[in-house]
Design a protein around this nucleic acid. Sequence first.
DNA 1: AAATATATATGATATTTGTCAGCTTTTCAA
DNA 2: TTGAAAAGCTGACAAATATCATATATATTT
Lengths: 231, 231
Amino acid sequence: MGSESRCENCIIRQFNSLRAMSKEELKKVSDSKVVKKVKKGEAIFEEGDKLNGVFCVRDGVSKLSKLSSNGKDQIVKLASKGEVMGQRSVISEESANLSAVAVNDMQLCYIPKEVIVDSLHKNPDFTLEVLRHMANDLREADDVIVNISQKTVKQRIAEAFIYLKTNFGEDKEGYLLLVLSREDIANVVGTATESCIRIISEFKKKGLLKSSGKRLGIIDEKKLRDLAEGF
Amino acid sequence: MGSESRCENCIIRQFNSLRAMSKEELKKVSDSKVVKKVKKGEAIFEEGDKLNGVFCVRDGVSKLSKLSSNGKDQIVKLASKGEVMGQRSVISEESANLSAVAVNDMQLCYIPKEVIVDSLHKNPDFTLEVLRHMANDLREADDVIVNISQKTVKQRIAEAFIYLKTNFGEDKEGYLLLVLSREDIANVVGTATESCIRIISEFKKKGLLKSSGKRLGIIDEKKLRDLAEGF
DNA sequence: AAATATATATGATATTTGTCAGCTTTTCAA
DNA sequence: TTGAAAAGCTGACAAATATCATATATATTT
């Protein structure tokens, strides 16, 4: 087994709360973890599932969404390299409130909850680190609430593109690295797919966005930002 | 000083994360805390303030809201007896992302952050308890996101009344104990005040709600629930 | 009690957004 | 490669919601 498959040596850990674990704790995690490969479109877990562990994203992106009573999915968060999914459910000892589906091919480390829960009780540094991450998620969620209820669909779509660029980057040609379908973008923004398509078309016509195949790229970031702010 | 003014004896503590504190920790908290009285409409802290402590609600209700770029307030949470406000900012070492304003006359205990931060580093039981509360807030925030983006204003207002009844109760005459202005209800739901008033009027005409002065009461809870679910 | 301010109410209208239908393009597997 | 399925696109229309104007009721101050 290569040394990079040991959590102690995993660079990704630096980005999440596992960095606050001791050598011994990491050894336990590493010994009990299972590496999983998930293909684009496959589910990692579903709303209502009892999670017996958490998933640490090694590669790829997952959408965390919740089905509303009218049958539409609302994407609440996009989790990428370094993020830990399922923590909330394990901590609350509740079943998952969100579904996780792979947006592209993914590599995950599945860590059984026992070792996590054990550290939560014994290592305050780790617990505090998890708490800090959750505090950050909560602030982001509050921001999303304000945006969805106070901004127009056009503003939110403009904002979504800025978000995709700053969080997932773009290639040398200026296309967003994270490729989402129009439906997924609509589900992030909380609007109908057709409305989303219409506005993206409008942005293309106005020279704010460009597209090539299913890839989308930002041409005029400043104008998009202004739009998102309501100018 | 009456013994009920000592945190060790405070019943309210049973509802929040302070219950996981040791006797000694509570003694420290009690010695450093300051009781504050805030009148209806007064601000406790504002978005952007640096918080040097947290506020434990002893009595009354506070609205936690965020100003959007279009100048409207979005109420993200209503905090009542037992809840601790400002935790998130203290944990993240960031300035407040929300404003807190008293909805009615309030009594608060202000606890300097040092004693909280100290316990967060030393007492994993306490940290875990705070984490559990925050995990719960996060789940609630996710639910709000889905509701706001997928339900109609009418559904959300129906839901808001169910929420107000289950969380704050009603008097013997069947009026909600927590009295909110139509504007506040609109800001909880994320809609224009006029739209909110219109729908409340409609609900009154249909015999779902009743009003007397500024008090509002639920007449037909079942129909309200059905409405909220989209029937 | 009168005067003023604030909250609630309602109509008319404009804007935004969703829905349905049909069409074109792309993707993917047989 | 070719044909089915999925994704993207666009128009027409309907529904939901916001905005503006104005009226009335309620609360607050003088």
